[in-house]
């Protein structure tokens, strides 16, 4: 294994009864980068994180984290990682400070260093004032910040964030993104799982799309968006008979010929910045009136539709049975 690879898996396989949670996953995360593992519920994201954090053993295949085998060197590996997110948690009946101190002691940092590090992290995650309060009085966003802080107590070189913003309202989600960018991702290698393309887009250096336990696409956010045609401009015209004129006028904004659906002209944008103003100017020049105009960003649905030929909701419905079975298998 190359020394600059922080996380590497080879043909990782995990069954829960009949359900293949992971069906031969190969991942490689260079040191100091952020990989976004993107997929719908039940795709195998959490199973992958659990194997990489030594919570579950794979049926076959191998995985190394920080150069250590997840099965044979599990004990040493645990000193190199931090885990936070949907499933990692904090104790509601302790204060924020007590939670971090406890985690520091369990990483064997020693009493005084644990206390010092806890105060430092509370400060860094904007929890200094709340540090002496019981966590059960915290908001959802504050809990997640404390959870992230707990993952960083021992300054681990590798951090796993399992759906760090799932269940948060949109405002808290954006706040947490900033926290992750500024205070978590500076230094360690990060593996982040998410159901949201915009989250992976914003936080990850590269993205692996996972479905039915398989990685079905990999690349940077731009590369993936290119595969599905990037950002899309949609224009509804005042006069439906001018569609041809509008398509010709907007041709320059796209790498391919604009098309129309239900009286709406659609095109994949080369450059999304200033696209709306540019399009309005061009349509105005040929005297085409605009009723409504919008840039639609590709969503996980679009990526999914493109890669699997079916929308996410269908994938989730298909997997619902699998998720249940997976739980049974773990119980």
């Amino acid at each position: 294994m190359a020394s600059d690879v922080a996380i590497e898996t080879h043909e990782l396989l995990k069954h829960f009864g009949e359900v293949k949670a992971l069906d031969g996953v190969d991942l490689s995360v260079p040191q100091g980068t952020i990989l976004g593992l993107l997929g719908p519920n039940g795709a195998g994201k959490t199973t992958a994180v659990r194997i990489l954090t030594t919570l579950l053993a794979p049926d076959s295949g191998s995985a190394r984290v920080a150069g250590l085998d997840v099965v044979k060197q599990a004990a040493e590996l645990r000193a190199q990682i931090g885990l936070a997110g949907q499933y990692a948690a904090v104790d509601e009946n302790l204060t924020g400070f007590e939670n971090l101190e406890m985690v520091g002691r369990l990483y064997h940092l020693g009493k005084a260093p644990s206390r010092k590090r806890s105060s430092e992290l509370l400060e860094r995650f904007d929890l200094a004032d709340a540090g002496g309060r019981l966590v059960r009085t915290y908001s959802g966003g504050m809990r997640r910040r404390l959870d992230l802080a707990a993952a960083l107590v021992a300054r681990p070189p590798i951090v796993f964030l399992d759906e760090p913003t799932t269940g948060l309202d949109p405002r808290s989600r954006i706040g947490l993104w900033e926290t992750i960018e500024e205070r978590v991702a500076q230094g360690p290698t990060v593996l982040l799982t998410t159901q949201y393309l915009d989250e992976a887009d914003r936080l990850a250096d590269s993205i692996a799309v996972i479905d039915h336990g398989k990685v079905i696409a990999e690349g940077t956010s731009d590369e993936l968006k290119d595969r599905i045609g990037g950002e899309r401009l949609e224009v509804r015209l005042e006069d439906g008979t001018q569609i041809e004129t509008a398509r010709d006028a907007l041709r320059e904004l796209s790498a391919e010929q604009p098309w129309s659906e239900d009286g709406v002209v659609k095109l994949s944008l080369l450059e999304d910045r200033g696209a709306i103003a540019e399009a309005v100017r061009k349509l105005d020049a040929v005297a085409v009136g605009v009723d409504d105009i919008a840039v639609r960003r590709p969503t996980l649905d679009d990526v999914f539709l493109q890669l699997t030929g079916r929308p996410v909701e269908e994938a989730e419905a298909e997997d619902a049975g699998g998720e249940e079975a997976a739980r049974e298998g773990q119980a």
Binding site: L55, I81, L83, Y87, A88, A89, V103, L106, Y107, H108
Partner: peptide, 17 residues
């Protein structure tokens, strides 16, 4: 239920603690 067991099991601490 709250996921604390996952956190504890991911830490380099004693398995029986």
């Amino acid at each position: 239920r709250k996921g604390l067991i996952d956190r504890f099991r991911s830490l380099p601490m004693s398995r029986g603690a």
